[in-house]
């Protein structure tokens, strides 16, 4: 990257460390932190949307719809989430290829043949000739969808509970004013629900942060992947030979997560205070008393 770093074997001390930490591979490592943040930035709203839909459907007055919503909520309970992660990534991939196979392959044969999953080369997603970038992007997309499905169920559970926690009297008053069911939902239930949902959602956000290293299991080149790659001992054949430093790299990741969760915790506390303003809860009452 820099002039001085042209011959790493000839330098030492601080210069060596500076050159080492700015090598091309390390820059990739730093970018992979953005991968984690990107995953969070996409997954959190997606899961919130899935969860909101799930909770609304579970509250439906139409029995099959309500059963569907409840099954979705109950789906992720009782079963370790990592199983869903391992399952959905393959299942989604095979599902996509199966559907594509129906359209682009001749005959569209049943692909699960004995010990193989076989579709014609044109039906592969992404195509074998695509660049490495597309393979990575596809893996990342599968991970996002999987995270959104699994966390959506957890969010749905929280929101379902929060909707039930809004005092009945509030809704009945709205009905007495002649609001339709949709109006009550939109104007009364949803705005009041958030303060009840926030503790649960905050908890889920922390859990989501701590779930991001699982990207590694899904085959995405994330921070865990690079920590293992870069930390592993390097012989003299490498530009920057060193012993087994994986411990230090993982220590770095640990600190990253600790700082991240701590900041989130502070943010959530502030948000709770803000949302409690003017609410008919103990928190809201405390704020009112403090102001008076």
């Amino acid at each position: 990257m820099f002039e001085v770093c042209a011959d790493p074997k000839a330098i030492e001390g601080l210069t060596w460390a500076a050159c080492y930490l700015t090598s091309a591979k390390h820059v990739d490592f730093y970018w992979s932190f953005l991968t984690v943040l990107l995953l969070l930035a996409i997954t959190a709203p997606a899961a919130l949307g899935m969860g909101f839909m799930g909770a609304t459907v579970a509250r439906s007055h139409v029995l099959p719809l309500s059963l569907l919503g409840r099954t979705y909520i109950w789906m992720v309970r009782g079963v370790p989430d990592i199983i869903f992660f391992l399952f959905f990534v393959i299942a989604l991939d095979q599902g996509l290829e199966y559907i594509k196979n129906l359209f682009v392959c001749d005959g569209g044969a049943w692909p699960w043949q004995g010990l193989e999953f076989r579709v014609c080369p044109e039906a592969k997603v992404p195509l074998a000739k695509s660049s490495a970038f597309w393979h990575q992007a596809y893996g990342f997309m599968l991970a996002v969808v999987t995270f959104a499905i699994v966390f959506g169920a957890f969010v749905a559970n929280v929101i379902y509970g929060a909707m039930n926690a809004v005092p009945r009297a509030q809704l009945e008053t709205a009905e007495a004013y002649g609001m339709s069911r949709a109006q009550v939902f939109r104007r009364i239930l949803v705005p009041q629900m958030w303060v009840y949902a926030l503790p649960g959602l905050g908890n889920l956000w922390m859990i989501l942060i701590k779930a991001t290293p699982l990207l590694f299991l899904l085959g995405v080149k994330d921070i865990v992947y690079y920590a293992r790659e870069l930390g592993g001992s390097k012989t003299q054949a490498y530009e920057y030979p060193h012993g087994d430093w994986r411990l230090w790299y993982f220590l770095g990741l640990l600190v990253f997560y600790l700082v991240f969760t701590r900041i989130s915790e502070i943010g959530i506390t502030r948000l709770t205070r803000k949302l409690s303003h003017g609410q008919a809860t103990a928190g809201g009452e405390a704020l009112r008393k403090a102001a008076a």
């Binding site: 290293p213 865990v224 930390g231 640990l254």
Partner: peptide, 22 residues
């Protein structure tokens, strides 16, 4: 409590393994 609750179990496993190997 802060260290064990604030970081992913997955990272804790990796870290412990690397530490024990040393």
């Amino acid at each position: 409590v802060f260290v064990f609750r604030g970081s992913p179990l997955f990272i804790q496993f990796f870290l412990a393994y690397e530490a024990l190997v040393l």
